[in-house]
Amino acid sequence: MIGLAHFLVLGAVLFSIGIFGVLTRRNIIGILMSIEIMFNAVNLNLVAFNRYLYGGDLWGQGDAIFVITLAAGEAVVGLALVLAIYRNLKTVYVEKMDLLKG
């Protein structure tokens, strides 16, 4: 029988994959995708908690909708910034972005 714990473990695994990706990827697009995986882990958690513990209301699912919407907005801005930097630098690898330091 699949229960709440299964979903939470899957969420934790997804979240860890996301963090690992953010820390190790050098391609900005890869980092963005990893961040999206983190957001999806959050959504899974919210919906699973809602379904298994608080079946009487829809707060968790509603929250997940907000997360999805704002993540999309954030991704739009992120991709626009990536586009701007690609036009100037002709690369999307973070190690090439070393102008600011100290």
Binding site: F15, G18, V22, I28, I31, L32, I35, M38, F39, V42, E74, V77, G78, L81, V82, A84, I85, N88, L89, M97, L99, L100
Partner: peptide
């Protein structure tokens, strides 16, 4: 420099939101 500052700000900001 503006591009680079913004993309670093964005990546850290989105990561911390996660």
């Amino acid at each position: 420099r503006s591009n680079e500052g913004a993309i670093k700000f964005f990546l850290m900001g989105a990561f911390s939101t996660g």
